[in-house]
């Protein structure tokens, strides 16, 4: 009995807080998608499916598709850079490893807006990157570096890459590198050993890295807002516009539901796969 009281006392504060400020608001988003807006930017009385129908009429699918596409490309680039980087950090000597790890983590601590801003000035029509590219003959003075999809993907990669490196490093650190030697010994070329032995060995880290990049990328708003153009808007921008420009909260809610579904899809896919894959192994391990 005393134990129950103790558990309750320790659980209630955080539990109730998250219930009130996380679960209820999230559910509310679903509810408000079916309420009409009032002319003062609030919520009107009654129920309606007009918002949802409106959503289908709008060319939102272009933006939804772009959101998925840009996030997927960002995730792929992050993975392509994070895999060798995580591998390199894990293989460095212990003394150097800590320094390298630190250098990967520090950007995480610096202000997100400042990092985006730094790129905005770098890619500026009169910024240094442009000047160097023009000097090298790789770009004409008219080539826009900013306010397009490429800039959005570049800055998203810059922002999310540290998050992708960390889980891959964590998995690589536990990986037994003698397996790579064994593969080489059996005739595998370096890249084959990497693909056939290292990659399956750090699978869990790769899955985490994908989710940790893909999910916030899908919800991107500031990056397309600051370095993207009108043709690189993502779902997040539309949600923000409905809130700050037209003040149509039900519409913003409906769009958020679409985003929630987009985020939930990869998350559930991973959970489902893992459950399916790991169950038989666990049973066999207990048996043997």
């Amino acid at each position: 009995m005393k134990k129950k009281i103790q558990e309750a006392a320790l659980t209630i504060p955080s539990f109730v807080w998250l219930l009130l400020f996380f679960l209820v608001p999230t559910l509310l988003v679903f509810v408000l998608a079916f309420r009409p807006p009032d002319p003062y930017g609030g919520i009107g009385p009654g129920w309606t499916t007009a918002t949802i129908r409106d959503l289908a009429r709008h060319p939102y699918w272009v933006i939804a598709w772009r959101t998925l596409w840009a996030s997927a490309v960002t995730t792929a680039i992050c993975l392509a850079l994070a895999l060798p980087s995580g591998y390199a950090v894990a293989r460095a000597s212990p003394r150097r490893r800590n320094l390298l790890l630190m250098m990967v983590i520090v950007p995480f601590w610096t202000s997100f807006l400042i990092r985006v801003f730094a790129w905005r000035s770098l890619l500026h029509p009169e910024g240094p990157v442009k000047k160097i590219l023009v000097l090298l003959g790789l770009a004409s003075p008219q080539t826009p570096l900013l306010y397009n999809n490429a800039a959005v993907i570049l800055v998203m990669t810059y922002t999310f890459l540290p998050f992708a490196i960390l889980p891959i490093y964590a998995a690589a650190e536990k990986f037994d590198f003698r397996l790579v030697e064994a593969a080489r010994d059996l005739g595998a070329r370096p890249l084959q050993a990497f693909r056939k032995v290292f990659l399956p060995g750090v699978r869990q880290g790769v899955v985490t890295a994908v989710l940790i990049v893909l999910i916030p990328a899908l919800g991107s708003y500031v990056i397309p807002d600051l370095v993207g153009g009108p043709s690189s808007e993502m779902l997040g921008n539309k949600i923000a516009q409905r809130v700050f420009v037209d003040r149509n909260l039900p519409h913003a809610s409906a769009l958020s539901v679409v985003l929630i579904l987009a985020v939930l899809a990869p998350l559930l896919a991973v959970l489902f796969r893992q459950r399916k894959k790991e169950k038989p192994e666990i049973i066999l391990e207990e048996g043997g």
Partner: peptide, 29 residues
């Protein structure tokens, strides 16, 4: 490099590939 030597090793830890079955381990080379 090791992959171009007709020499194979039995490791102290065996270094069997944990994600592959016995059959696939043997077939690897």
């Amino acid at each position: 490099p090791p992959n171009r030597r007709r020499v194979n090793t039995i490791f102290q830890s065996y270094a069997l590939f944990p994600h592959l079955s016995v059959w696939d381990n043997i077939a690897f080379g």
